[in-house]
């Protein structure tokens, strides 16, 4: 369960993004506390990916505030987001297929020797250490990531985020392309990271992918926020109703407090 902290790790408030005349995100607010998993749900085109891109620096908002650790934050690009310890694992994983695991893990943040050359051996060593922690079965350090299975690729992408001390992890459809065993592996990883106090946004269009892992669920439809609920207070059917009909479940209709974690 989320710890009792005074302020959230991340708070997005009243975010607006429009492309041309289309409002992709229309006044959406949500937040994330340390050690918490928030599932962000909605149909394709509901605006959830766009919302999260505002946080990861891949997209600019027209208006709205981002607060990180209760401080106003300005995120213009992926580098800014990284400086705030926000790491994103994209649905496409954003791996360079022709490079090996270590090269991908350190892409853009290479370790250099004193003479300014790539310190390949040290990078491989660090990669072996972190993969030993996250996925002990991983052994293909010399192969390009193209030769890895979906789960192995996913673990490289996660290792990249974790190695650089992510406080906030954004995962876009983390298990959509994975088989049963690999999905289980990624779920274990998410629980492990959560226990280390990392806040995680899980984005998905499929309720089954995220329901069991999430502490809270934020649902969007047509660019608007439907609502945020605590997972323990709702059933999958309730959430499906929110996704499809775009309204809060009846028993929570008046519960404006639902958006806060660990209330009561």
């Amino acid at each position: 369960m989320p710890t009792d902290t005074a302020h959230p790790l991340v708070a997005l408030s009243d975010i607006h993004v429009s492309f041309g005349g289309i409002k992709a995100v229309d006044g959406v607010s949500c937040d994330l506390y340390p050690g918490e998993v928030v599932g962000l749900l909605g149909h394709n085109g509901a605006g959830k990916s766009t919302l999260i891109k505002v946080l990861s620096g891949a997209c600019h908002s027209d208006s709205g505030d981002i607060r990180i650790n209760d401080q106003k934050a300005v995120i213009r690009n992926a580098r800014d987001a990284r400086a705030y310890n926000i790491e994103t694992i994209y649905q496409t994983l954003a791996l360079a297929d022709n490079l090996d695991a270590a090269a991908n893990l350190f892409l853009g943040r290479e370790i250099l020797t004193s003479s300014g050359m790539l310190d390949e051996v040290r990078m491989e060593d660090e990669t072996r250490k972190i993969m030993g922690r996250l996925n002990p079965n991983f052994r293909k350090f010399a192969a390009p990531v193209k030769a890895l299975s979906g789960g192995q690729r996913q673990s490289v992408a996660i290792a990249r985020a974790v190695y650089f001390d992510a406080k906030v992890l954004i995962m876009d459809e983390p298990t959509a392309a994975l088989g049963v065993q690999e999905t289980a592996m990624v779920s274990e990883l998410i629980k492990q990271l959560k226990s280390e106090g990392i806040g995680i946004f899980l984005i998905s269009h499929d309720i089954h992918d995220v329901f069991d892992l999430s502490d809270r669920l934020t649902v969007m439809k047509n660019g608007r926020l439907v609502g945020t609920v605590r997972t323990e207070e709702v059933s999958k059917e309730d959430v499906l109703g929110m996704i499809i009909l775009g309204k809060m479940p009846d028993h929570l209709e008046d519960g404006s407090e639902a958006g806060k974690p660990s209330a009561q």
Binding site: R79, A94, N98
Partner: peptide
């Protein structure tokens, strides 16, 4: 990296 995946390279800063 750019040759392997231009988007990934961009997202890696």
């Amino acid at each position: 990296a750019i040759g392997g995946n231009p988007q990934a390279a961009e997202l890696s800063g």
